[in-house]
Computed example of a mutant assay.
Amino acid sequence: MRQVKVEFEDSKTESRAVFEGTVEEGGPGKYVIKGKTTATLPTDFPHNRKMIILEHGGTSSPFRDVAREVTSTDEQTIELNIDGERGDYDSVDLRLSMNLGGKYHVTGEKTTVHLSGRPQDIETRYTPEHHSAAFKGQVWADGPEHYVIKGMASGQLSHESGVITEYVAFEHGSASGSWHGQTFAFDGTRLGAREVLVRGERKKGEGVMIRVGVTNGSFNTFTYGEATTIDTLPLTS
């Protein structure tokens, strides 16, 4: 959860507004905004609807508008509870704007809230007798109960295996959870770097583990290297 304050001021109409509240993770690909907007809009434009608008969205998404009518020339407070969607590793952007009957619209400066924590480097390698597999990338907290891993998996065979397709596996999990992962097929003797971008669940405060594996020939079963662990994922960047 992050505390946030978004301010807006238009000197031409002497309009002011402030949103104060929190932004928190709301499940996979989601966020929740809670708080209140306090607004003072101009006394002129008497026949126009006066709207104060909180715009919000993930950094890779367009803004969405939540508009509320201001019906008094006195300072007015508006409670807000908003659900939004974002990419798995997006921050959340907010800004305030004002509309006076559609003829006068002013948009304030953007404020960015980082829900994810500081990225940490993570890598692992497994080299059984005739194969090798590796992963190199970064991991970071996505709120207290999730994490994101981004990087590249690669592998090498000592010789082509003939009719059997060999694979590299990349797996991840929390300290108390099960393994989750994906596989990549060798093309000849080499697996070029393949992008990995995954989001996982964890208990609050838990670390994250990764490992890589390769298939071992005729039965095409996987063997794995030792797990590499990041014990602590900071919640702030």
Rank of each mutant, 00 (worst) to 15 (best):
L41R: 02
E195C: 15
P234K: 03
F63C: 03
N99A: 01
V212L: 05
E75V: 13
N216P: 06
T43H: 11
V18K: 10
T124A: 00
T127V: 13
P46C: 02
Q120W: 02
A175C: 13
T112L: 15
G217P: 01
V23M: 06
L54Q: 02
K204W: 09
S161W: 14
Q76M: 03
A153D: 03
G217N: 00
E69K: 02
G192R: 14
K150Y: 05
K203R: 13
K103S: 11
N216Y: 12
D74Y: 06
L235F: 03
G27N: 10
R95E: 01
H131Q: 15
L41W: 03
S97G: 11
V4T: 02
H131E: 15
D121T: 12
G177T: 08
K150V: 10
A39S: 09
K36W: 02
T127M: 12
E9D: 08
E201R: 14
N48H: 12
N220L: 14
D90S: 03
H172C: 11
Q182P: 08
G151Q: 08
T229C: 00
T221P: 07
K34S: 09
V198D: 05
Y104M: 03
T111C: 07
H180T: 07
G205Q: 01
R2K: 11
F170C: 08
V4I: 06
E85N: 14
Y126T: 10
T37V: 13
E7G: 04
R2P: 02
A193H: 12
I78C: 04
F19L: 00
W179H: 14
V163S: 05
A185D: 04
V148M: 06
Y224R: 10
F186M: 02
R95F: 01
Q138V: 13
I78E: 01
E24F: 12
R211K: 06
V66M: 08
M152C: 02
K110P: 01
A39P: 08
E14Q: 10
S116R: 14
E79D: 09
E9A: 05
E195L: 13
S72P: 12
F45Y: 10
K50Y: 00
G173S: 03
R16Y: 15
V139H: 07
H105T: 09
G102S: 01
